[in-house]
């Protein structure tokens, strides 16, 4: 889904390294790029080489991507920091698995901090998009390439092993006409009839580096205003709202349906941009909702962003299953039921 969407978004360069559970994407890219006259696929010698090849392709003007899973993404962080610093567009897919360390190959959401806090060294952020369905994977992939080009910054698509293995019908958008994309007046393609160009991140003068850091910070503020997004489900009359993203949100949706059947006023809020985080939408809900339950396939990472957004306005509860455990809607609905009555939310 992401592979085909990437090709249709005009991606012409993919470099990657084998790692489970996301090899389907790498293999799809290999055959898709081979079918394109101007497509390049490289099976790199390492995750680090792959991201650095993407940097080179991006410098040369291509829409470029790489993908991996948690341990591989750790290795790629060097390059992601350089992409952010050098203001180069690129798309990185992380199909999260259980960790830390080698962990396992089951679906998990333990890389939230790494993804949303930059992940590599230095003062930067990465746009993070979190699809929860096959269709949304395709749609957000298109957006990822557009955002990367527009804001000149790396964009991460954050999924998990469940999303990676999912099969769903998807309607793909028409392929992008590459000739109609906005020009890139910074590309390194040889200084013919123009002054030579430089793409760098070394800024030895501390005041220049400070200016660069603030410039990036202002860019992230612009991004936060322009692209932030989340989806609400049955929140209108809700007394308790579940907040979850990706696969966890799908499970939570099933749980919300179940508890609605027994009359509990419970809704779901699903952020699909994790950086920027939809703070305002959560604050808006807090005017009527005094209890939020954050559900993650981790020991609790996004829950910190919810608390930061709310600044004490409402109660924040947490339920998590790390390590590759995938909860059932039944399990979550029991958790909801118990919390709902503990908080006496059934009382008018």
């Amino acid at each position: 889904m992401i592979g085909e969407a990437a090709v249709r978004a005009g991606c012409r360069f993919y470099a990657g390294y084998p790692i489970t559970p996301q090899n389907e994407l790498t293999e799809y890219a290999a055959s898709a790029m081979a079918k394109l006259e101007d497509g390049t696929f490289i099976q790199a010698e390492s995750e680090i080489a792959a991201i650095n090849m993407v940097i080179g392709a991006s410098m040369a003007g291509a829409r470029a991507m790489t993908s991996s899973s948690s341990p591989g993404i750790s290795l790629k962080q060097e390059g992601i920091s350089y992409l952010a610093a050098q203001e180069l567009p690129a798309v990185i897919v992380n199909t999260m698995r259980g960790g830390p360390g080698l962990g396992n190959i089951a679906p998990a959401q333990g890389d939230y901090f790494q993804a949303t806090r930059g992940g590599g060294h230095g003062d930067y952020r990465t746009i993070v998009l979190a699809p929860a369905s096959g269709q949304e994977s395709a749609d957000l992939t298109r957006k990822a390439f557009d955002y990367a080009d527009k804001y000149l910054t790396p964009v991460m698509i954050l999924g998990d092993g469940m999303m990676g293995q999912m099969m769903e019908p998807v309607e793909f958008p028409e392929p992008v006409d590459l000739s109609k994309l906005p020009p890139k007046p910074w590309v390194l393609d040889g200084a013919v009839g123009r002054p030579s160009r430089l793409i760098r991140s070394l800024l030895l003068d501390t005041s220049v580096e400070e200016d660069h850091n603030w410039k990036l910070a202002r860019k992230y503020e612009t991004i936060a205003r322009e692209i932030v997004g989340g989806e609400t489900y049955m929140t209108e009359d809700a007394r308790l709202v579940i907040i979850a993203y990706g696969t966890a949100a799908r499970i939570a949706k099933g749980a919300v349906k179940r508890v609605r059947e027994i009359g509990l006023k419970v809704g779901l809020f699903r952020p699909y941009t994790l950086f920027p985080y939809p703070n305002r939408m959560i604050v808006e809900m807090s005017r009527f909702v005094k209890d939020f339950l954050v559900f993650e396939m981790s020991t609790g990472q996004m829950v910190e962003d919810v608390k930061l957004a709310l600044e004490g306005r409402s109660n924040v509860h947490f339920y998590g299953r790390p390590g590759g455990i995938v909860s059932t809607p039944d399990e979550i609905s029991k958790e909801i039921n118990s919390l709902y009555h503990r908080r006496h939310l059934e009382e008018e």
Binding site: I42, N52, S196, L198, R200, S201
Partner: peptide, 27 residues
């Protein structure tokens, strides 16, 4: 890059050959 008057793209320590690969494959 302060000295060469040609297009230059800085690589992280040791990654020159990978960055060059990406550039050359596109151009």
């Amino acid at each position: 890059y302060n000295y060469f008057d040609v297009d230059m793209g800085e690589a992280a320590h040791g990654r020159g050959a990978a960055v060059a690969t990406g550039i050359k494959r596109i151009l």
